[in-house]
C-alpha cells in the first residue's frame, strides 16, 4: 500500500531523474573509479554474510567431512589434526547393518523417516484446513489466528517441557484424562519411555509444527483473487469443489516450498526430542539427530559421528534434488499443457 502511494507521489521526480540522467550517462565512461566502485559494491554488500556463512557453515562442514575420514576419539580431540587417518572405516562401521552400530543407525534412520512422513503430513493437513477455515472473515477470526500461532511462537524448550509434565506417569494430565477420567487404559501408561514415546513425540511435533504450515498457507491464500471464487460460485461450484478446483491448485507453488522446508526441519529436528527425552532417547523415538549426537558426544567417538552426519547430509541432498527435479518437471509440464 505505502510503496504505491509513495510511487505516485515521486513519479514526477522519477521522470525528472530520467531526464537528468542523460547528460550524466554521457559523462560516465570518464569516471573510472566510480565504475569500479559500482562493480565492487554488490560484493562489498555481500561480504559480511559471505564471511559469516563461510565461518559458521561451510568451513565447519568441510572440516566435518575431513573428520569423518579420521579415527577421532577422545585421545585426539585436543589436537584433532594429529588423529590418524581411518580411510573409509568410519563409514564401514556406520553402514554395517549386521553389527550393533550400523543396526542402531539403520533403526534410527527408519524411525526418523516414519516420524517425518507422519509429522509433515499431519502438519500440512491441519495447517491447510485451519487456513481455509479462516479464509473468510467472521467474528473471532483475528483472535483464533493469534491463538493458533502461539505454539509456533513459544520457545521450543518451554513448550516441550510443558508436554513433558503432561506426559508424566504419576502426575501428568494425559494419564489423568485417559485413565482416571475416561477409563480408556487399564493402568496409567508410560509415555516418555517404551513404544508410546513415538506417539508422544509425534503429538508434540505436530502441535509445534502445524502453525508454520498454517502461517505459510494463510499467506498463500491471500494471493488468490476473490473473483475466482465468485465466478466458481456463480457457475454453481460447491464449497468442496471450490477448495479442490481453486484453492489447492493455487497453493501448489507454496506447497512445494512448504513441504520441502517442513521435511528438512523435521528430519533434522534436535530440539524437540532432546528436551522431551533428554540425552538418550527411547528406542522407539530415537531420531537421527539425537542418535548422532549421542554417538559423538556421549561415546566420544567423533569420527564415526561425523561419518554418520555426512551420510545424513548426502541423504538429504539426494531427497531434495529428486524432489526439486520432480516438482520443477511437473511445473513445466503443466505450463506446456496450459499453453
Amino acid at each position: 500500500m505505502s510503496p504505491d502511494t509513495a510511487m505516485t507521489a515521486t513519479a514526477p521526480a522519477a521522470q525528472a531523474a530520467v531526464r537528468k540522467d542523460a547528460p550524466g550517462a554521457a559523462r560516465g565512461p570518464r569516471r573510472r573509479p566510480g565504475r569500479i566502485r559500482r562493480i565492487g559494491l554488490p560484493y562489498l554488500l555481500l561480504l559480511p554474510a559471505l564471511i559469516l556463512e563461510l565461518l559458521v557453515h561451510l568451513v565447519p562442514m568441510v572440516i566435518g567431512i575431513v573428520m569423518s575420514f579420521k579415527e577421532l576419539t577422545q585421545f585426539y580431540i585436543r589436537d584433532w589434526g594429529t588423529a590418524p587417518w581411518a580411510g573409509l572405516d568410519n563409514y564401514k562401521v556406520s553402514v554395517d547393518f549386521d553389527a550393533p552400530v550400523g543396526a542402531a543407525l539403520l533403526h534410527s534412520f527408519l524411525v526418523t523417516v516414519a516420524f517425518t512422513v507422519l509429522s509433515v503430513g499431519l502438519c500440512w493437513i491441519v495447517g491447510t484446513a485451519a487456513a481455509i477455515c479462516l479464509q473468510d472473515t467472521f467474528r473471532g477470526r483475528g483472535l483464533l489466528r493469534a491463538l493458533f500461532l502461539v505454539p509456533y511462537a513459544l520457545p521450543v524448550y518451554a513448550a516441550v517441557i510443558t508436554w513433558v509434565f503432561m506426559f508424566q506417569h504419576d502426575n501428568g494430565l494425559v494419564n489423568h484424562v485417559l485413565h482416571d477420567q475416561l477409563g480408556l487404559t487399564d493402568k496409567p501408561s508410560f509415555w516418555l519411555i517404551g513404544d508410546n514415546s513415538f506417539l508422544a513425540l509425534l503429538t508434540v511435533s505436530v502441535w509445534k509444527g502445524w502453525p508454520f504450515a498454517f502461517l505459510i498457507v494463510m499467506a498463500g491464500l491471500q494471493n488468490i483473487p476473490r473473483e475466482l471464487y465468485e465466478a466458481a460460485a456463480l457457475d454453481g461450484a460447491g464449497m468442496l469443489q471450490q477448495i479442490r478446483r481453486i484453492t489447492l491448485p493455487s497453493l501448489r507453488a507454496v506447497n512445494q516450498v512448504l513441504v520441502l522446508v517442513l521435511f528438512l526441519w523435521t528430519f533434522n529436528d534436535f530440539n524437540t526430542p532432546y528436551v522431551l527425552f533428554g540425552r538418550t532417547a527411547p528406542e522407539a523415538a530415537d531420531l537421527i539427530s539425537v542418535h548422532i549426537y549421542q554417538a559423538s558426544f556421549v561415546t566420544w567417538n567423533f569420527g564415526t559421528g561425523s561419518a554418520m552426519s555426512v551420510l545424513l547430509l548426502l541423504f538429504l541432498l539426494a531427497v531434495t534434488g529428486v524432489y526439486l527435479a520432480l516438482t520443477s518437471r511437473q511445473r513445466s509440464q503443466r505450463k506446456v499443457k496450459h499453453g
Partner: peptide
C-alpha cells in the same frame, strides 16, 4: 539443509 549436528563439533 545442513544437519546442525554435522557442524557442531567442527
Amino acid at each position: 539443509m545442513f544437519p546442525g549436528i554435522l557442524f557442531l563439533l567442527p
